[in-house]
C-alpha cells in the first residue's frame, strides 16, 4: 500500500514537469509573433495553459517554420494557388472567378468547423460544396493531395489570428459528441486522446515528445512523410497507433472531434501551414 502510494507519487511528479526544448522560444514568422501559449478556455477542466504543438518540437524542426522560404509546406501552398486560378468543371469557373482575392478568407480557419443548416461543416466540406454546387466539378478526396494543399492555402490566410470556434447553440451537441470521443478509450492499447495529450503532454513517449495535440497549425507539413497532413489524417494515425479502427476521414465522428479539439486550441494563433516531424 505504502509502496503503491510512493510509486503513484513518483508518476505524478514526473507528469507535473512539462519539459520544452526551450520554454521561452518565440515563434515569430516573417516578423509576426504567434501566440504559442494561452490561458486555457473555461471549458477545459484539467488544463491551465494551452500550448501550440510548435512548442514541443526540436529547435531544428521549429526553425523550419520561422521563414516561409524554409517552410517546405509552401511548395504545396503555391501549387494550391495555381489550382485556385484554374477553371474546372462544367461551369468553366475557377475559385478566383467567385473569390477574387484569396486573402478574403482571413478568419475562416479560426471559426471552423461550424454549423450550417443543422450540419457541422469543415473547410474541406466548404471547398467541395463550391466544387460540386457552383463549379460543376467532381469533389476532391477528403485528405487527398489537392484538398490538403487547398485547405492549407485557405487556412494560411488566417495565420496569426486566434482560434475561436463556436461551441454553444446549434454547435453544442456536436461539441459534446466530440468531447465524448476525446475521452473514450479505444483500441487494443485501450487509450483515449486525453491519456496522451492531456495527462502526459511534455513527456517523452519513446522517441516522441508528446504535445497537447492542438490543431491550430493544421494543415501541417510533416518531415516524416514529406507532404501536407490534415487533421483527420492525424486523428486516423493516432487511432491506428493505439491499434484502434479509425473513423473515416470526413465522418461525423471526426468532424465532431475536430470541433472539440479546435475548441481546446482557443486563443492560440493559427500557424497554418506549420511544420512537424
Amino acid at each position: 500500500m505504502t509502496l503503491k502510494a510512493l510509486m503513484l507519487g513518483c508518476a505524478a511528479a514526473a507528469m507535473a514537469t512539462v519539459a520544452f526544448a526551450d520554454e521561452d522560444a518565440v515563434l515569430s514568422i516573417e516578423g509576426e509573433t504567434m501566440v504559442t501559449q494561452a490561458a486555457a478556455p473555461a471549458h477545459m477542466e484539467n488544463v491551465d495553459t494551452v500550448y501550440s504543438g510548435w512548442t514541443f518540437r526540436t529547435p531544428e524542426t521549429q526553425a523550419l517554420q520561422l521563414d516561409d522560404f524554409d517552410n517546405p509546406a509552401f511548395v504545396f501552398v503555391d501549387q494550391a494557388l495555381e489550382l485556385y486560378e484554374t477553371a474546372d468543371g462544367t461551369a468553366g469557373k475557377s475559385c478566383m472567378d467567385c473569390h477574387a482575392n484569396v486573402a478574403d478568407f482571413a478568419g475562416l480557419k479560426t471559426s471552423l468547423p461550424r454549423v450550417e443548416d443543422g450540419e457541422l461543416v469543415t473547410m474541406t466540406n466548404l471547398v467541395n460544396e463550391c466544387r460540386t454546387e457552383r463549379m460543376g466539378a467532381e469533389p476532391w478526396k477528403y485528405s487527398g493531395g489537392q484538398m490538403s494543399a487547398m485547405t492549407a492555402l485557405l487556412a494560411h490566410q488566417s495565420r496569426g489570428m486566434p482560434m475561436d470556434v463556436t461551441i454553444d447553440g446549434d454547435a453544442a451537441p456536436f461539441w459534446e459528441k466530440g468531447k465524448e470521443l476525446y475521452y473514450t478509450r479505444v483500441g487494443q492499447l485501450d487509450m483515449s486522446c486525453s491519456n496522451c495529450h492531456e495527462d502526459n503532454y511534455g513527456v517523452m513517449i519513446r522517441a516522441d515528445h508528446l504535445s497537447q495535440g492542438q490543431i491550430n497549425g493544421f494543415p501541417t507539413y510533416r518531415l516524416k512523410n514529406a507532404k501536407i497532413n490534415t487533421t483527420h489524417g492525424r486523428f486516423k494515425g493516432c487511432m491506428k497507433n493505439i491499434r484502434a479502427t479509425p473513423f473515416k476521414e470526413g465522418s461525423p465522428e471526426f468532424k465532431a472531434l475536430e470541433l472539440y479539439v479546435a475548441s481546446r486550441s482557443t486563443g492560440l494563433s493559427v500557424e497554418s501551414p506549420s511544420v512537424r516531424n
Partner: peptide, 19 residues
C-alpha cells in the same frame, strides 16, 4: 492507468481487426 493490459483479449472498443 494509461498502461495497456498485455494479457487481455476481450472488451476492447473498436480494436483494429487484426488485433
Amino acid at each position: 492507468t494509461i498502461m495497456p493490459a498485455f494479457y487481455v483479449d476481450a472488451g476492447y472498443t473498436r480494436p483494429l481487426e487484426k488485433f
